[in-house]
Amino acid sequence: MTAPTPAPLSPPSLEPSADRAAGAIVGAFIGDALGLGPHWYYDLDELRRDFGPWISGYTDPKPHAKYHAGMKGGDLSQTGIIMLHLLRSLADRGGYNESDFTRRLDEQFLPLLDGTPYVGPGGYTNHSIRQVWQARVKEGKPWGQTGGNADTSEAAERVTLLAARYAMTPGLAARHAWENTHLSQTDSLVVQQSVGYACVLSLLIRGEAFDEDLSGKLMDRVRNGEIPFVVPSSIASSSPSATAGFGFASPDALLLPSWVAKSASDPDTRVEPAWKVSQVYGLSCAIQFVLPAAYHLAARFPDDFESAVLHAINGGGQNMSRACLAGALLGAQVGLSGIPARFVEGLADGPEIVQLAKVVAGAVS
């Protein structure tokens, strides 16, 4: 079930690439907020009983909800709040300044946590951020030694903003995505997929299509050294520690999007309705479940922001992360000007987010 697409937000007021960069940023926040009410329903019959047959916009968490109790539709989750700290830092500093971002977390965010799941802004603290709090606050470790083994997609959601800011210099987008991911997560699969997602997003902002040729374009940039994604096998074989720096043993994270895009357009493997993609790739929180589903929706609905994010939400499970990642991918394709106005108008922090997104997008390099 798909609702009709309303008019877009506004006529383009930015250059096309900047419009797409701003769309990626705003789309990520919209997806996050859409997931607040119906977050983490693994029983889809229960999801339908609580929210009806089709969720079409922002919703309040139910009184009996375990997560995000007392919050309102359109509010940001804790992941969205951290993203807003990063967005403010990018706008204020003109680019990624890790010291400024982590200072904001030290001063404005971490003191609000106590290391337990249900204390802190946003109503729920994810495992990765509880590990950061433990390392930084309880153990006094410096930033850079705060990452843990969580296999979730919070870092990928954050690096949306870095991919948007550095879309025209994909090597920098990948480098900063790698650095930012390590602040909270160090699992090699999580880092590879998060950085790969940033590389995909930067190419979409540059105007490339999300199709079966996208991965080849990414690999061309790896081969010419523009994206230092893969450690050359000759180096990796002679130095066991080679993969400790930036670079991975395998390019699979860059190959995944086109495989998914090809299946999304193949009539013989069609997923109907599209929200059932969550059941194909998995309902759970691990990035290997969430990210392919977001890629699928981005490839299936390349010019329809609303359909992509709403099918992401109506699939249940970790729908918040699925919609956040899909919202960024769709925003990168349709631009800020192509996002229906109601999604921006219903976003609690919408005016600030749009303004900051335009500032960051205006500096895209």
Rank of each mutant, 00 (worst) to 15 (best):
P232L: 09
G35S: 09
Y166I: 01
H39A: 12
A249W: 13
R175C: 11
A264C: 07
L201H: 08
A33S: 09
Y166W: 05
M320W: 09
A363R: 12
D266E: 06
G247Y: 00
A156I: 02
A150T: 01
Q288M: 09
I81W: 12
L161R: 00
R206L: 11
P257N: 11
Q318S: 10
T243W: 14
H311A: 12
V309G: 06
G350S: 07
A69R: 14
I82Y: 01
A244W: 14
S194R: 06
A308Q: 08
T2S: 11
D304Q: 14
L36T: 12
D114K: 04
N180F: 02
F343M: 09
H127P: 08
A242C: 08
S77E: 08
T5S: 14
K276G: 07
D266P: 08
R206I: 07
G316N: 02
G316D: 05
D43A: 02
E352T: 08
P12A: 15
Q333G: 05
N97Q: 15
A7P: 12
Y281F: 13
I235F: 08
V309A: 08
D106M: 04
Y58K: 08
G123R: 06
S239A: 14
N224I: 13
L14P: 00
A33M: 12
G147M: 07
D304K: 11
I227T: 07
V200S: 01
D50H: 03
R130S: 00
Q108K: 15
L218H: 06
S278P: 00
A91K: 08
V359P: 06
Y295K: 01
D50P: 00
S17H: 14
Y124F: 13
H182D: 07
T59F: 11
H39T: 05
L44Y: 05
N180M: 07
V354Y: 00
N224S: 14
S278D: 03
P61M: 08
R49F: 03
A361W: 02
E157S: 10
V359D: 13
S263W: 13
P267D: 09
G140C: 07
Y118C: 02
